[in-house]
């Protein structure tokens, strides 16, 4: 299990999760920089994600959607704010409608920090709810996706998928 630390602050509404990987910082950065790699991990297998526009440059806008098992598409948008390859990335993640207009609730802030040691690298992701509605949105979507995330976690116990 690569997760080495989880820190939740109920007042500041932040959750920070840190994982250690047997890879270098550059390889971990690629997981974020390459849209085809992003698509392999951003959505759970039940909700595959498609990144339509994505470039890690400050000021750029990422457009993506996730497809639910019933075919419904959930659209999202990132605003890339700070980029320091391969160590730091800051962005906001918004739920938007299919016209790209933000839904109720402010964005969720995400700060990714990648640090390299001798033969491993750690990736730390801090997520921050900017307001209560964005938090409620996460809970609502969690009803649907929380279940599949959980199955993702137990499935390895029963052998590989496919």
């Amino acid at each position: 299990m690569p997760v080495i630390d989880v820190d939740k602050d109920l007042d500041a509404l932040t959750m920070t999760i840190t994982a250690e990987f047997e890879a270098d910082a550059e390889r971990l950065w690629q997981l974020w920089a390459d849209p085809r790699q992003l698509e392999r991990w951003w959505g759970p297998p039940s909700h595959p994600s498609t990144f339509v526009e994505h470039e890690l440059t400050a000021g750029s806008r990422t457009i993506y959607f996730m497809t639910a098992p019933d075919g419904e598409q959930h659209h999202g948008r990132w605003l890339i704010e700070e980029v320091e390859p391969p160590h730091r990335l800051h962005m906001t993640d918004d739920v938007v409608d299919d016209k790209g207009r933000p839904e109720d609730g402010g964005p969720v802030g995400m700060t990714i920090t990648i640090a390299e040691t001798d033969d491993t690298a750690t990736m730390s992701i801090q997520t921050h709810f900017t307001d209560r509605p964005s938090m409620e949105q996460t809970i609502e979507m969690g009803f649907e996706q929380g279940m599949t995330e959980m199955l993702d976690r137990v499935e390895p116990l029963f052998g590989p998928r496919e």
């Binding site: 932040t14 997981l31 759970p44 990736m123 969690g142 996706q145 995330e149 993702d152 390895p156």
Partner: peptide
């Protein structure tokens, strides 16, 4: 708590998938 737990679960799933990709 529910929202932060939800985020933790979501990211644990993502990190596992990252590991699989690597």
């Amino acid at each position: 708590r529910a929202a932060l737990d939800r985020l933790e679960a979501q990211w644990r799933g993502r990190i596992e998938r990252m590991e699989q990709i690597l």
